[in-house]
Computed example of a mutant assay.
Amino acid sequence: MDAEALRTFVTVAETGQFQAAADALGVSQQAVSKRIAALERHLGVMLLVRTSRGSRPSPDGQVFLPHAKKVLAVVEQAEQAVRPGSRPLRVDVLNRRISPAQAVHRFYRSHPEMELDVVTLSTENAAQAAQAVLEGTVDASFRALSADQVPAGISVERLMDAPLELLVGPGHPLADAPHVGPAELAGHRIWIPGIMPGTEWAAFYRTLSEAFGLSIDALGPDFGPEALMDTLAESDSLATLVGRGDRYLWPQAHDLRRIPLRDPTPVYPHVLLFRSGDQHPVLTALRDYLRTAGPRTPQDVWAPEWVETA
């Protein structure tokens, strides 16, 4: 059933005039007449009685009128539910400890009136996350996506480069270094448990290893960041890599050291994925915020060439 025809019938019934209804709806009187005639043919009844003084609902029209109003109210609710800005922006941050989650949190603290729904998708890789954005499961996602994985209908913007830092215990040979070059890590064991084959972060660390001759492995079970911190604190040879904006906490007695990598600075490129043409006002505000208030990218950046940037 045509919602515009229903709206036209209700307007005529309330105004009592075809011309008044036409004026209210912004259409011609002829268009009003055609809509009413089509609705009456569809229902097989006469809905309006025409008189010299205007139009009024017929007995069937009087019965139909409250139902038509209810249908229009439901249609309005459905339209409102998906109108830009009428619902929270649903953002996938991949992991609540890493820099995208922290940046979105800072955005929310500076814009508390903005409605956000922050999630971590259970998708295995960036391509699946892009598909989730395309299908509307989420409105946006932070991923490191290669150009050949960007589906039609998805736009990307590289808004956050997270510089990597070496995280070591106090007994590690590099524990007191003010900064370290990535090539200096050759020969040191870098342990990053939980790297899943086929994911964008697995591809990132593989490319990083090949570029600087590093030994990065994910051997053994992943018992979570707390267990990793405990292991680092006890080891004089083990190290891991974290993003500068990542939030990890450990007991003060662990005395772990975060050491910047420089010359060049490897960055994990968090690219924002969103549906092309999406006009959600919170998405627009988030993108503007990250462009202006996001972390500054170092000058000597290294990132994989395969990452899509725009």
Rank of each mutant, 00 (worst) to 15 (best):
N95I: 06
A218G: 14
L273F: 05
F142Q: 06
G44F: 04
P151G: 07
E4P: 02
D300R: 06
L159P: 12
D117P: 03
V63Y: 08
P88D: 13
P151D: 11
S58D: 06
M114C: 09
P88A: 15
K34H: 11
F212S: 06
A103H: 04
V75I: 14
S155D: 15
L39V: 01
H111W: 12
P281A: 01
P66L: 13
L214F: 12
D60K: 04
L286G: 02
T123V: 14
V63C: 01
A21Y: 03
N125P: 09
T297H: 10
L164R: 10
T265E: 09
A147I: 15
A24Y: 09
V32T: 03
W201F: 05
L48A: 08
A144Y: 00
T123R: 14
S141D: 11
S33Q: 09
R56V: 10
A37H: 02
D2E: 08
H270T: 14
A130L: 02
P225N: 08
I98Y: 06
H172G: 11
R206A: 14
W306G: 05
E4W: 13
V307Y: 05
S141M: 11
A183V: 13
A21D: 09
A140L: 04
T265S: 06
A126Y: 06
E135K: 10
L286E: 03
S55M: 06
L48E: 06
T137Q: 11
T309N: 02
R244N: 00
A310M: 08
A177D: 10
L273H: 04
H254P: 05
V119C: 07
H172A: 11
F9I: 09
A183L: 10
Q77D: 15
R109T: 09
R291V: 08
A68S: 15
A78F: 01
I98G: 01
S33G: 15
P225H: 15
L65R: 00
R258P: 07
S155N: 12
L39G: 02
I195E: 14
A293F: 15
A186S: 11
P298K: 03
V104P: 07
L272P: 15
T231Q: 13
G181H: 06
A147T: 15
W302G: 10
A31V: 13
P260V: 08
P57K: 00
P295V: 00
G171P: 11
D288K: 07
L94Y: 03
D222L: 12
P182L: 13
G181I: 02
G85H: 04
E76D: 04
L208G: 01
R247M: 09
R97E: 11
D246P: 10
S276D: 14
G181E: 13
Q128P: 03
A38C: 03
A177Q: 13
A24C: 04
S209W: 01
T120M: 10
V12S: 00
F212M: 08
A38D: 08
L25D: 05
G26D: 01
L214S: 05
A186C: 14
Y108M: 11
Y289I: 03
P112Y: 09
L185N: 00
A211Q: 05
G181A: 15
R56E: 12
R158S: 12
